[in-house]
């Protein structure tokens, strides 16, 4: 009876430990990846997003040439990959400033000095060649074109769709939840340690059994993380996102696949750790049984 009760208690503690391990892993991923701007900057670099943005914007302004009369060559300098990087950086920075509670909104004001200079130069040259007065109407037309170009470039550089996320209310929720996430790792970590300690106290005389229960918990938690992450990767599930912009699609799916890959790696490491713990449990158990056999033989 006593053994049965101890076994059932161990099962319950192990179940709690399983979900505790999963919660701890998710907390580490949330703080280390999802809420860490460095992870997003890495995606921008790995996916060559600024190159994709440059191509897309060049095509756009080429198509617009017939309507606006402004040749795409006017925008050439502004549309270079290295000049688009600061715009992408600032939209990312503003996204996290908002989520962290530092900024009141996600509006960005990138530096478009080069673009405005090139447009002004073209407009003034055009006005001089065609005898157009540089009056208020001229400045108004110039400003309109600058604003339209800046708006388009900023929108294309918003690779993680900050605007859409904000409109959908997701960013607002993330901003509210963020202060609580600071406690995630300490709380889940402390709870995990507490469960390990309780299990240890139950099996302090038979440490091999403690290793066994911990190994079983680690194994099951790793399998529960591995199965969905492997399925998501194998079926390319995130490709179902229908996003018109190639760079946004690459950014979003790149981030999600990266996250999934990390979970898979953690899960595989967890399984390896579980196997090691089982081996240690086996060794400790063998040593204990030998000691007991020697003790029994003496008596």
């Amino acid at each position: 009876m006593k053994r049965t009760i101890k076994y059932l208690a161990s099962v319950i503690l192990s179940l709690l430990l399983i979900f505790s391990f999963i919660a701890l892993t998710c907390s580490v991923l949330l703080r280390g990846r999802a809420l860490n701007p460095a992870a997003y900057h890495r995606i921008v670099a790995e996916q060559h997003l600024t190159d994709k943005i440059s191509v897309r914007l060049t095509n756009y302004f080429t198509q617009q040439e017939n309507t606006t009369g402004i040749p795409v060559s006017v925008y050439a300098e502004s549309l270079k990959s290295e000049n688009l990087e600061p715009v992408v950086d600032i939209t990312l920075r503003k996204l996290f400033d908002y989520v962290y509670g530092v900024a009141p909104d996600t509006e960005t004001k990138p530096d478009f000095t080069v673009l405005e200079g090139d447009l002004r130069k073209f407009f003034e040259q055009y006005a001089e060649e065609n005898g157009i007065a540089r009056d208020a109407a001229f400045e108004d037309a110039l400003r309109k074109n600058m604003d339209a170009a800046e708006k388009k470039i900023t929108a294309e550089c918003d690779v993680f769709k900050t605007g859409s996320l904000a409109e959908a209310g997701l960013l607002g929720k993330a901003r509210k939840i963020y202060p609580l996430t600071v406690w995630l790792i300490p709380v889940t970590g402390a709870f995990t340690l507490l469960l390990l300690l309780i299990l240890f106290l139950m099996y302090r005389r038979t440490v091999d059994r403690w290793f066994y229960w911990v190994a079983s918990s680690v194994l099951v938690s790793s399998i529960l993380m591995l199965v969905p992450s492997a399925w998501l990767s194998a079926t390319n599930w995130f490709d179902r996102f229908a996003v018109k912009s190639e760079q946004i699609f690459a950014a979003v799916t790149g981030f999600l696949y990266g996250l999934t890959h990390t979970v898979t790696v953690y899960a595989v490491c967890g399984i390896a750790a579980a196997v090691l713990l089982y081996v240690i449990a086996g060794i400790c158990g063998t040593v204990r049984h030998r000691k007991e056999a020697v003790r029994n033989a003496k008596h």
Binding site: L15, A168, L170, L224, A242
Partner: peptide
Amino acid sequence: LAGGMTVLGWSLAPTHTVEKYLNIAFMD
């Protein structure tokens, strides 16, 4: 046991809300 509890929890969780937000944000 853990798998069963996970499936049960997932079916009760408001995943349709998350899916709605993901669709609005990422589905053109």
